[in-house]
Structure formats: structure tokens, C-alpha cells
Design a protein around this nucleic acid. Structure first.
Lengths: 180, 180
DNA sequence: ACAGCCATGTAACTTGTTACATGATTTT
DNA sequence: AAAATCATGTAACAAGTTACATGGCTGT
């Protein structure tokens, strides 16, 4: 529901048209998660269908402007007020994969860990680089972008450390990293 | 694609029927991510449609058994071999929400952080508890379950620390935690 | 003229998710 | 007899994703 709510939040600020929404979204999230323009329009259709936004024909500039409704404003408020449920966290594909790798025969668990570790470390480095560049000199990025980058860094760090822990436990468990 | 691949991986071990797959999945992932039984059947249908598994009528016990095909085995191998792309990480709803909160007027960013922090800390505590219980005495849980719990703990820790960083930066930025 | 950005949309599709219907077998 | 578990499925839908079609406008 991230996109739905994001667009709604942007519309609460002020009425906007589709193309604009995409740019705003990517600006504010630091382009970390690209948003396909097609999806903006489909999401707007669905928001309109659900009565959360209304299509305001034209704005004089030839743009199809949407504005938020009362119901939409309520929804945004609830989104900001309510926390994301961490008791039901989104499935972690890597954790699932590893859990299956260690319980199934014929899977080289250590290889799975290592190949994942490589890309995770690389992602961590890239995010750290980006973070350094963003905060460097000319205050080139806003607070929001920095928060997003920090989030990516923290998550990546945790992932790498977890992978290391897994690897260590494998070694401890059967003295090697071979297939089980 | 987690579920798809998970079921496929379980079928690579040996042919199984739907109900069994659900139990195996939840056993191995420590029941952290419940799997609706209906989804098992729909996913199996789609896997069959894609030629990755085949329906083997009966197994003598009245069960509708599925087994993996050559194409399916390839797919599983590729899944285990290939790392999850961390350059395109899944959208982090909390990061998005916060990025929007700080860039939009009228949103009490500090309140958003605090309410999220509460549930994240609570989730962290629960996972830590579960972890303690799992490793305690009777070696009651298998390696896979522990890995999953550790993953949840690491992610939750990272999330809390990131939220604290955000809060600190808010305070530093405008000396209070009020709406911007 | 042509490339590239601005701008709107549609069609077709994927995975995931839930609610419901149905019945057999096992346990209490 | 009732409740729980085993077991299989279907219908309907949500959210996200991409590929494509279309056209105006701008700069080279």
C-alpha cells in the first residue's frame, strides 16, 4: 500500500497531476525506488474508484489534476498516525531461502550465503557512497533523501551481519561449508 | 516470488501434496510468516500452468501429489544460486512514510517516529523472547528457525536504531519535535 | 527533421491474499 | 454427537508492474 498512500499524501499537500506526482515521489524518496509512470495513473484510477481522490478535469494548463477528498484525508491521517505492523513483517526472501537451504538436502548453503553476501556488501558500499556524496559539500540533498539512504544503509548492514552470523553458525555446526 | 520458489524448493526434495507443503513451509520458517492454505493451491495451479511442476493424480493415500519437472528444478537451482538483488531493494514503507512526513507540511514527524518506534521495539522484544525460548534447554528448535528469528531480530534492531537516528536529526534540525 | 522530454492513458499480466464451500477422518 | 484436524479447491479481488500507443511541445 506504499504507493497508494504516498500519492494520497502528496495530494493532501495540494492538488497535482500524474506526471507531477511521479516526480515528487522520486524527489522525496531520493530516487531509491523508481516509480513507473503507468502505475501512477492506474493507482489514481483506483483511488478515484475508492472515493479517496477526485478528478478535477483541467487546471488551465491542460493537466488532469486530482485532489484529495475528505475520505482520502482521513486515510492519510490514519496512515501517518498508525504504525506499520512489525508483528507481521513482510516476508524476507533471503531468510526464507536460507531457511530452506539448510533444511533441504543437496543445497550448498555456504555458497548461497556467500553469493548473497557479495551483492549485499556491494549494495551497502553503493549506498554508503551515495550517502557520502549526498551530505558532502553543497548540501546537495534534503533531509528526506538522507533518511532514505540511512535506512538503506542500516538495513544492508544488518543483512550483512546476519549473513556472517549464519555463515559462522554453519561452520560451527559441521566444521565446513559444504552441502548438507 | 518467495512462495512460488519455496514450494518449488520443497517439491525438489520430494513430491508432496498441498496440505503437506504448507506445514513444511511453516515448520522450516519457524511459523514467522504464516501461509494461507488457499494460496498453496493457487500457487500450485500456476506452477503447473508454467510447466514447473506436474500433478501426479493420486499417491495411493488419496492425496493430490505434485512433483517437480526438469524446468522446475532449473528454476530452483537458479533461485538458490542467484542472489536477491539488493540494488533494487523492496520498498521500505516506513522509510517512504518518513520521507514524506518530513517533506510535507502539517505532519508531526516526531509523532510518526515515536509511534513506529513503539511497535518496532515491541516486535524486537517479542522476537528476542522467542529466540531465547527457542534456544533454551531442550534444543527445541532447528537451525532454520533460529536463522529466521535472528534475521527478524537484526532487521528490527536496525529499524529501531534508524528511527532513533531520525529522531535525533529532527531535534538537531529544529530544536523540537513538532510539526514542520 | 529529429531527438527528447512532457503528459496521459490502456491492456494484460503477476504475485499475493482472503473468504467461502465441501467433505473425510480423527479425537474428545 | 461435537469439535478439531486433514484435505482440496474456487471465486473474487488487491496491489504492483510493464509494454505499448498516443500526442504535444522544445531545443538542436
Amino acid at each position: 500500500m506504499s504507493i497508494r498512500h504516498s500519492l494520497l499524501a502528496l495530494l493532501q499537500d495540494r492538488p497535482r497531476y500524474g506526471y507531477e506526482l511521479r516526480i515528487e515521489f522520486e524527489d522525496r524518496t531520493g530516487a531509491a525506488w523508481p516509480l513507473n509512470i503507468g502505475q501512477v495513473y492506474t493507482t489514481l484510477d483506483r483511488l478515484e474508484r475508492d472515493g479517496l481522490v477526485s478528478k478535477d478535469g483541467d487546471d488551465g494548463g491542460g493537466h488532469v489534476v486530482y485532489s484529495i477528498t475528505a475520505a482520502g484525508a482521513e486515510e492519510v491521517a490514519a496512515w501517518f498516525a498508525g504504525a506499520v505492523d512489525r508483528g507481521n513483517p513482510p516476508r524476507n526472501e533471503i531468510a526464507i531461502k536460507l531457511a530452506l537451504a539448510v533444511t533441504l538436502p543437496g543445497v550448498d548453503t555456504s555458497a548461497v550465503i556467500q553469493s548473497q553476501r557479495e551483492v549485499s556488501v556491494k549494495a551497502l558500499q553503493e549506498h554508503t557512497q551515495a550517502r557520502k556524496a549526498a551530505s558532502g559539500s553543497k548540501g546537495s540533498m534534503d533531509t528526506a533523501g538522507l533518511l532514505v539512504l540511512d535506512s538503506l544503509i542500516f538495513q544492508a548492514e544488518a543483512e550483512v551481519r546476519w549473513l556472517d552470523l549464519c555463515e559462522a553458525r554453519m561452520v560451527q555446526a559441521h566444521g565446513n561449508g559444504g552441502a548438507n
